[in-house]
Design a protein around this nucleic acid. Sequence first.
DNA 1: CTGCTTCCATACGCTTGAGTATGGGGTCTG
DNA 2: CAGACCCCATACTCAAGCGTATGGAAGCAG
Lengths: 208, 208
Amino acid sequence: MAKSSSVAESQANSQAERPRLTPADWELAALELIAEKGVNSLAVEPLARRLGITKGSFYWHFPGRDQLLTEALERWERLDEQRLVQSLHSDACPEARLAEFVRRTSRQTLTHRIYLALCSCPDDPRVQPVLKRVTTRRLRFLTDAFASLGLDEVAAAARARLVYASYVGYLQLQIQGLAPDRGAEGFESYIEHVIDTLVRSRQQPVNS
Amino acid sequence: MAKSSSVAESQANSQAERPRLTPADWELAALELIAEKGVNSLAVEPLARRLGITKGSFYWHFPGRDQLLTEALERWERLDEQRLVQSLHSDACPEARLAEFVRRTSRQTLTHRIYLALCSCPDDPRVQPVLKRVTTRRLRFLTDAFASLGLDEVAAAARARLVYASYVGYLQLQIQGLAPDRGAEGFESYIEHVIDTLVRSRQQPVNS
DNA sequence: CTGCTTCCATACGCTTGAGTATGGGGTCTG
DNA sequence: CAGACCCCATACTCAAGCGTATGGAAGCAG
């Protein structure tokens, strides 16, 4: 019974063995719950049940639900920014970076579902600034990439907005089951169609 | 005090003069509330307060909250289908129909906000079938239009999905305040950019 | 005027979740 | 080993919303 395993650090337990949780555990579990049920469904007691614990633990780590939401969103924003920076340094060619951005749509499922959940309540005072910062950062990344391809500033901004809007809308269609998932039949051809239409055809005749 | 105005029909009162409500009044008010606060915020008591009445009235007209949501969504679906049929017969030229579809993005604000609210909870068993029917209907409309422009079936379906995804994503960006509203500076140029990119450039070279 | 139907008000019980208070079992330190 | 500290359980209060039960006012029929 007496597990005398000397556990010096208390940060390595995920959520299965020891019911000793850190604030990071609560934040990550909160993000998972947000991805599944939405921001409005982030409640303390259901989250505690999910972790196999009671809310007495929660109110020791956090002053309240608002603080949990705030710090979980900050954590998610940092992760998203790191991924974006990695994308910036991944491929030298801007066209390859854009194509990779499009292809990434169906990967990083958790991040995408969290982003959609945040889009669902843009009026929340804790969600709105994070959402705006993340979206602005991603739009700037796309705008810079298109500008590197030779488009002027206005056209690059418009094309970036168009690509990003198609990305967000594709996530919605995917959740509704009306767009093919990654690995499904027809997914690759659609991705190629998007890249052909939005990335490769960078100089279309505007004048009729 | 005694308003002896002989009101024979009880269907014409909106929600201001007489506190005598019909099921249609409840459904329309529910749709407005959904557009503002989302589906999850559709509660009986707040809606009754909004109408200046108590929930004793509601439970006379409806058996419960679920029935109100179901009938309100059916009503919205009928409205959306009527608008789509009107679009089908508006312009003879498919290209003009597509351009008009894109331009319509910033009009019909209530319908758009309701659609976004439904997208926010696609797991709800009462929302999911309505959402899927409406999206499928709109996608078929777009696919047929692109097929009329000469694209083969696969390309038309992919282009329709791309246009529709960009439409949904644009709504999201608009709510976040990161896309210009109708009438704002930069809106028209963006719309023209979208039409040029997605509608007019209908034959791009697929083979590299 | 009487009685019936329609529509709404009021009052109640039930459930869920927020936040607080307090105790108790481990774990580390002296 | 004794005390302090960290982490969690339990037991409350409070508020909001669902659904129900019942009464009451207004309108219409006879």
